[in-house]
Write a protein that binds this DNA or RNA. Structure first.
Lengths: 247, 247
DNA sequence: GTGTTAGCTTGATCCATGTCAACCGTAAAT
DNA sequence: ATTTACGGTTGACATGGATCAAGCTAACAC
């Protein structure tokens, strides 16, 4: 049932089309900081929504790139495949985050994006995004920030893979998830993991057995309660200490 | 001694000011693909050159961000520091590559950029770059490609750190350097490393002893000849095989 | 209900890389 | 030419996480 916006009747019209101006993720996503005017111009661009079923690909490595994607709801992973068959999860993405920026450089996607639960995405045709951001300074700048944030995030992962031990990595991972759930209005202390131990391990450069053991250890020490994919964080500071305490 | 360009007398004039239009790295760097007209507009923007002595910082983590930097000559490393004192080298950059894009997201640099030899950089004020790329489509698109390439590169490093063993990492590292030197017109088979074993190790998530042992092993096996920082690649295919051969 | 399967946990053992330590080579300083 | 210092090499040993293996749990199909 469509809701009317308290401020402006014009907006309540746009509720009917599925649009950024109406999206409760707009403060986390591409529209951040845009005026009402500008939002409506973005709406024209982001017209295609798509449902992706759990396990399905949003895009595959090797496919032509022509759009980036904003996650409207759901949960994704991206992974890269090496010629020799090894692969690695390069990230987990949740609502409000953008996918596909890896494809800009060569106009071919370099990784796979796979839904970890039934999800919904907004496709943003890239050349039209470039046009619009030539006109809307705020949009241009925000998009640059988003790409830069991805680079900074990657540096964090490199740090994690290069210098941290297994338990530090897992603690960092849990704290990061918790923080991102919080930003989306969910509990910071209790959530369901959408990914398997193997996927977590791949992301963290560990084997699934090591991930499992670390979960058990955290539980024994009273930092968290784990039951399969259900996680409760009992002691945030404990985890933080684990993350940065050298042995 | 200034040279005249065979095509156009106008260009020989611009030789006098130190400018992109005159730079032999322009095909590797930001000016890629621009017309003569557009190049001259970029020249106005990239007016400040700076020399950075070996060991000096180009910028430091925590400093305000307001420009990105193109390397005109020389060699840099970037590193990230964790609160607990651990650090990691996140990249090595050479002539024609851009530095500083990590700072766009928060307007504060998140890593240190340090010259590994006496170097020269061109400062590109970021807000002016954004303005100009609102006017020059090609510039805008190329800049997006450069940022995206950085993301793809980072994924490669994550792959390396997450799934490769010590010798595979070092082989990948050497092949990557070789390929980048080649793109700059240098020998693909013979070069001097600008970084120490410790810096290589930090980048590859290994200890310096492990790096040193791997160099020795490669030499014993006839893939390379090492003498301190001087490297000769004797068998590229051997290295490639090492890179992707699981044990 | 029962069977099936994918994912998770736990134990025993092994090995790649880290750690610690001694020594060597090269280049700059005196 | 000698000293000094930094970076690199090599060896011996320790260990964190991988590997191999067995069994458990939860969810889902039938």
């Amino acid at each position: 049932m469509p809701q009317t916006h308290p401020l402006n009747q014009e907006i309540s019209l746009s509720v009917i089309k599925t649009a950024c101006s109406n999206c409760n993720l707009r403060e986390l996503c591409l529209p951040f900081g845009l005026s009402l005017d500008e939002l409506e111009r973005l709406d024209d661009l982001v017209s295609t929504r798509r449902r992706i079923k759990r396990g399905d690909h949003l895009y595959r490595a090797g496919e032509a790139f022509d759009a980036i994607y904003a996650i409207r709801s759901g949960f994704f992973k991206t992974d890269v495949l090496l010629e020799d068959g090894r692969d690695q999860v390069t990230g987990f993405q949740m609502a409000g985050e953008l996918l596909g920026m890896d494809g800009i450089s060569t106009e071919v996607h370099t990784c796979n994006a796979i839904a970890l639960e039934d999800s919904e995405i907004c496709a943003i045709p890239f050349s039209r995004l470039e046009s619009l951001s030539r006109e809307i300074h705020t949009l241009q700048h925000h998009f640059h920030k988003v790409m830069s944030r991805e680079i900074v995030r990657d540096h964090g992962v490199m740090m994690l893979l290069g210098t941290m031990r297994a338990e530090e990595r897992l603690a960092a991972f849990l704290l990061n998830l918790s923080q991102r759930f919080t930003a989306r209005g969910f509990s910071h202390a209790e959530f369901y993991l959408r990914m398997t131990r193997e996927e977590i391990g791949s992301y963290l450069g560990l084997k699934l057995e090591t991930v499992s053991r670390a979960f058990s250890k955290f539980q024994e020490e009273g930092h968290i309660a784990v039951q399969q994919k259900h996680i409760r964080i009992l002691n945030v500071n404990g985890l933080k200490a684990l993350m940065s305490h050298r042995p």
